[in-house]
Amino acid sequence: MQSAIDTNKIETEKRFTINELILEHKTETFKQFVEKAIEVEGVIKEITFRNDKYTIILSEKNHNTLVLCEMQIDQNQKMTKLNVDEKIKIKGVLKGVLMDVIVLNCIILEK
């Protein structure tokens, strides 16, 4: 299912490194970024394709928490050019945390 949201048209609320985002989710201020567009820079741990959607999983050496970035459909062509262990900057809508930080409607900003 394609979401009605297009992240290309939303202004970025805050920029994080993956380490900053993982630390931020344990603070009270994290809530203010939920449902807002954020940018996160990190290293690709894994790329999955399930239920017709790509997800880029970012990880940080010192944390068990991952960042799951579910990609917008318009990013599909770019996905085949990405590699694990590559550094990437992603923009998406922050949704919250379970075991991992969840970001939806993600687009690739730069490789």
Binding site: K53, L68, K95, V97, L98, I102
Partner: peptide, 24 residues
Amino acid sequence: NQVNSLFKPETSEIVVSVLMRAFV
């Protein structure tokens, strides 16, 4: 598509956690 779950075959236990804002 970002639902968390743990399953322990030995004891048949299953737990699921769904982030409501992640529904599309």
